[in-house]
Design a protein around this nucleic acid. Structure first.
Lengths: 241, 241, 241, 241
DNA sequence: AATGAATGAGCCTTCATTCAT
DNA sequence: GATGAATGAAGGCTCATTCAT
């Protein structure tokens, strides 16, 4: 087992390790943890059947590694900017929605057989499998990625609603916003059948993001505490500049 | 294979068949198609190991049968009333949201070990698995259940938006509404971790339905064609130009 | 898994089960638990590779079954007669020694490749493996066979020594007697090389049994409590000088 | 393979070789040849996985080397003194029994995790494994260690019995003595369960040695040729009729 | 009609060994 | 000279499926 603690970062031919990781990402995304066979992964990576056990100890160890790498990909570029309250909550919300949708959709563009189509992709599809059948890895993802994002979303919405982030209404609104976004990922097999013309081009992604943003902002304003009702009606629309 | 086309409608001990179906529903819902073992199903049904192959030819045959039965259960009680335009679109929307959420949540309430908790349940969780890894059966479900529901929803929203049901804006709104609802089912493993206090009691379901309804109605009104802008403030919709 | 609780004793074709047991006995005796492969057993039994898992759940389950059957073979025919004090302790001791040696030697006569040579045999050789590397099964054997035999032996020796059965001297003597006997089984690979002419014919077994009996009786008499010294000569103390 | 015939006696880092040997001794003693993994040995020795193959060509090569070294350790300190007939046979016998038991018990005292507890130990336990499943190495051990000891024992007993060393009675007596001694090693897993209070402290070892000695001396005297019967009391020998 | 026994493919994993560096 | 990476052969076990009864 090489990864004792990995003080030597990596000599050279750990190319195998990365190829294994990449292949594993594809296959896990396609079939989920259970249905994925180590043999398939190794075949795609051009490695021996025992390579997984050597580099990752386990099939589960490999899955963990894939998930861990996936976490980095699920980056939070503008988290800083959003968390700081320098941005108006409307702008922050648009930023978050656009970011989530973009990251997810980019991943969804990956086509089977064309692994390079979505670089570091598959993490959304893996999450879909985790929804259907949670794994020990899910907890880590929630802790490191989803949880913080959820908290950030509630903070932004709380500012909009003038309610604390953990207020029930804030939570419901957070789920409303997030639900709209992730729907395009989770229900993809259904949506692609119900709306065949919907191709997730960048323009389309932008359109959807704008729709969700305005749709949600309107919904949020309707829930604002009456005290702040004066703030709306005038409501300078925040259409894309 | 006895029931080739079932000229004798059913002798008597085809009670086994139904018990098999019921057990299969539970197990498939819990583990998905792949991860489910025929032995588990047969054990729960108190049937022989070969019973599945005898009655349904295949593990897949059993899955198909489960899905087919699931369709009937996914009833559309008020479809008639909604489709007829006797109801105002606002009321119709509330009815649909409440219905979807109720059906889903009732199913989600089913607890392992207590199969009767969600009678004829599991169909939502099976759908979650289908999302992660579509099966041939998904097309049938879409065709017979989801598609009609989607069309109905678009019809109702179209009336609200004063737009045709297949207008892009109508579709986006339909996805916004549906996304909010199904989110509570599809993302259940995550939500239950992010919001542990959320128990899907009937009261809670009602609260969520009300929230989604008012949230969506506000969002919809903001997108209404400018002709109806008098109903709201200035809010020039920023739908696609 | 058939052996639910086995109320129906066995239909008919559980011939496979017994053939599996027999083959397992041979192979386990030859190679020990670890080094034995299920495939080898199944091949010898003319059964499928999965037969072991079907009938015995586990490789370990099969081993347990073999051990359990071995216990019955390790019969204690005259236990009753010996335990009842109707026999003089000298006779009882001779009986026990002869019995142990006979049972063990019969088993030792089984030759590889000739499985019928020692019917229900191999149990001694399995014990040899257990000595080298104890298994969970050893405890059961000790509890059910060895322990009672040990107690019986100590009872007989106690009567001879006029000491309680759990006196240290009684225990040491028991180990002396048992050690002499089992040596012919445990050290067989060595003995057969050191004394090639020693073939375990029935006559030879009788000779050895007689030798151990008289050798041990003399040793025991020398340790008898001084009160009974009239039975022996001066009884030179055997303490360290 | 560096040490083809070792013209350079040893560079310096052949410290690895000895550490490998030592670790191998422990592990082989604990698990036997088959069940021992090269990885375990190398890990304990702090060496590379390929070290065994490099230094000893084979896992079997390492085992051979361990056995060979074990021979030297199984020293025969007082062999000279015993072989010379300067000692009375009674004393010689006591010496041999004590020596055998001490060497064996010292080894048995070695505790897992404390490799230094029995310095150069494990050779007895390896022998136990060899009893269960002889290896090519056993012949060498017999030839170099056990055989000479056996001959020496028969010589001493022959003097006691006034019979030639290769007389059947002498051999039987030798096995009786040896059987008693090695029993404490070979049947250790059983004995430790049947007699939990028996801890092999030096005092206990001394007690056992004394017991075996006096027990055996009495047995031997009873078998002495009648010509020497004057040395003992009446001693109605119960030799074979 | 319906079952218990049996099957063979295949999966994950481990192990001793080799090879390029 | 010596090591980390990689290999391929098994091994135990599970599973969906079939067959004789």
């Amino acid at each position: 087992m090489p990864p004792k603690d990995a003080p030597p970062p990596s000599p050279e031919q750990e190319i195998t390790r990365s190829r294994l990781l990449e292949a594993a990402g594809e296959v896990f995304a396609e079939h989920g943890f259970q249905a994925t066979t180590v043999r398939d992964i190794c075949a795609r990576a051009g490695a021996n059947v025992a390579a997984v056990n050597y580099h990752f100890r386990d099939k589960m160890g490999l899955y963990d590694a894939v998930l861990k790498e996936s976490l980095c990909v699920a980056g939070h570029d503008d988290v800083r900017r959003i968390a700081e309250q320098s941005l108006s909550p409307e702008i922050a919300l648009r930023l978050m929605i656009t970011g989530m949708l973009t990251r997810m959709s980019l991943n969804l563009l990956s086509k089977p057989g064309d692994p390079a189509s979505g670089r570091g992709s598959w993490h959304v599809r893996i999450m879909a499998h985790e929804m259907a059948q949670p794994t020990a890895g899910l907890d880590r993802v929630i802790e490191q990625v989803i949880g913080p994002n959820y908290a950030l979303m509630r903070q932004v919405l709380g500012r909009l609603l003038e309610l604390p982030p953990d207020h029930e209404t804030t939570r419901l609104c957070a789920h409303s916003v997030i639900g709209q976004v992730v729907h395009y990922a989770h229900a993809r097999p259904v949506i692609s059948r119900l709306w065949p013309d919907l191709n997730m081009s960048p323009e389309r992604i932008h359109q959807i993001a704008e729709h969700i943003t305005s749709f949600s902002l309107a919904g949020l304003r309707a829930l604002q505490s009456p005290a702040g009702s004066s703030k709306q009606c005038s409501a300078p629309n925040q259409g894309k500049p």
